[in-house]
Design a protein around this nucleic acid. Structure first.
Lengths: 356, 356
DNA sequence: TTGTATGCGTTATCAG
DNA sequence: CTGATAACGCATACAA
């Protein structure tokens, strides 16, 4: 069973044709007479030849058909948030069309990790706001390989796939304002690297693009809304953040805007566990609009972002670059989707709005 | 910028040494004098040579340093359950030690999916109980490439990584029985392909190994416990299943054993939404013991399975095969972890136990 | 410690 | 439509 595997040369010899002809039978790049094709196919079958060795083929072609996807340090962190997985799924779909597979890479600064420096990839996709983004980018560019960044702070000349985060968050904020809410609190995504849960101070800089942009959008509508940064995009973190918000100083907010659906679910649960009803006592909004486990039977009021589309757009950008075309960045936009987690604020208990 | 990239030959020429010497400087396989090393490194830097072309290297070596991971049709389905992602993380870790990356492959029966048939992988890992497992297996074996199956029904001769599902489920069932429970219901994982939520009839065959084994373990302790199959391992499906169970015929169970933590969380929530308290009115157990989002502040009583270890074991099996050694299957075992979702059954309301 | 020679398995090119 | 030829870029056995 460990004899040398048959090569295309073996097949050609047995079929009585030239190796190049046999090759063409498999690649289909050039017309071949039915007769010879049949002979080659028969020979291949007889020898158990299942097609060209991908290693040799990629050397010859100068392409491996592999796209490297760089996600954070641990896969489980990257896959925790459904937005990421859906995006990845879109990417997989887009790359499958190009006949390319996804090579998962962690950007660990560790020892010999194969990673960026030695992976046989034709292109790379950097996803998320990894702290090491700059390093990764440098390593890849040194190799002269095309790269696309999804939702990250890449530099000049790198095509980026981004979302209209600020405007989108403003849209949903206006929805809340139009319902009559005035006391609103915000629960944001990770604001610093590494993440640290806590209130976001007035002038503090925010290290993560997405967080900063969405926060700005909310503040466009509610300039003074206090914001609490969660430690991660998860239900539990949303729960903890909401507890902090509800226990916070000043009058209790009548609406809480979360920067992700996962956080929103946590917020909802915390509100409920505090003995209040969503949306009667507190309205809650999310952001993402992908399927979130555990919301039922409620339906989240949220902004639907085209997560799968992000992946597909990255795929498109990559094929463009591979084809020698100019890489094009892309700005995708989100859509408002009403649910039943928002409603008018409860009747004010006699405190004039101006006292807030 | 699109001039031919420098090769090791260029570097060698500039450094005034032979190509093989330059090669050795990068691979480190043979001692090189400091002087020449320095010259080579300098030349490389000057030419912007960042190391050997992985494509050429893999052709020469006969290894690509890539392991293909075949997951279901859509990535998002595979990554929905934290057990899978944790396992994948363990696998990634194991493979990183072997200096190998993970190539994500979908087993879509689609058109020309590159996948199994043409991926430059040194080995494959099939994960989960994909319906197409047999096909995938055949395609891979035809290529003569090592393969490992995790938690799936592979045939003879294929190393498998499995869990002591039956015994583990029996352990937790005994815990529940020892607390005094007698009326117990089961919520199982997907029982058929494609999945269909509903009661599992007496003699009906169960298509999915994991489900069958855990069910058997529970029945070892509670032979007559009714079982409801969820449509997937998710909180929402667990919620729905529990609703069905609570509305089912006969007296209400005092304990519900779920086959996954995600299902258990859904069950808990359904129980609570029905106005009951966990564990006072109904005890609930899970299975998996990985971090589940949204359980807080409760702690699930569950069986902890070594999910990451499964991945690492697969990695070990692969390196063994790659090294020409005999592949070894592995049976991992789970550990009981008490939480606060189980307790003694509520005081019987006058119905003698024998009447159940 | 360094250099020489060879081939890994394909496929693009071009001439028949 | 088919065949001969020449790389693709590298790493190893072996000789020096």
């Amino acid at each position: 069973m460990n004899v040398r595997r048959a090569t295309i040369a073996d097949v050609a010899r047995l079929a009585g044709v030239a190796a190049s002809t046999a090759s063409v039978v498999f690649s289909g790049k050039t017309p071949v007479s039915d007769a010879t094709r049949a002979r080659v196919v028969a020979a291949a079958e007889q020898l158990g030849y299942t097609g060209p060795d991908p290693r040799a083929a990629s050397l010859r072609r100068g392409r491996s058909g592999i796209v490297g996807v760089v996600i954070g340090d641990r896969l489980q962190n990257a896959f925790r948030d459904p937005v990421t997985t859906v995006m990845l799924d879109g990417l997989a779909e887009g790359m499958a069309e190009q006949d390319a597979g996804l090579l998962l890479l962690r950007d660990g600064a560790e020892s010999g990790e194969p990673g960026l420096r030695s992976a046989p990839a034709d292109a790379f996709v950097l996803v998320g706001c990894s702290g090491r983004l700059a390093d990764s980018l440098a390593a890849i560019r040194a190799r002269g390989i095309p790269v696309v960044v999804i939702e990250g702070d890449a530099g000049e000349g790198v095509p980026q796939i981004r979302l209209d985060n600020r405007e989108a968050q403003a849209v949903i904020a206006r929805h809340v304002r139009d319902l009559g809410h005035e006391r609103v609190a915000l629960v944001t995504l990770q604001a610093s690297v590494p993440p640290h849960a806590g209130w976001i101070a007035g002038g503090a800089p925010i290290a993560v693009d997405v967080t900063r942009d969405r926060l700005a959008g909310a503040r466009d509508v509610f300039p003074d809304a206090p914001a609490f940064a969660a430690g991660a995009s998860s239900i539990d973190q949303g729960y903890a953040a909401a507890e902090a918000v509800l226990a916070g100083p000043g009058p209790r907010p009548t609406a809480i805007l979360a920067q992700s659906d996962l956080l929103a679910v946590g917020v909802i649960r915390a509100v409920q566990d505090a003995g209040m009803v969503v949306p009667d006592d507190v309205s809650v909004t999310g952001f993402d609009g992908v399927w979130v486990d555990g919301v039922a039977p409620l339906t989240l009021t949220t902004m639907v972002q085209p997560a799968a589309e992000k992946g597909r757009a990255a795929g498109a950008a990559i094929s463009a670059m591979l084809a020698g075309a100019e890489p094009e960045s892309m700005l995708l936009s989100s859509a408002f989707r009403p649910g039943n987690t928002t409603g008018p604020p409860p009747i004010s208990r006699g405190e004039p709005a101006s006292s807030v």
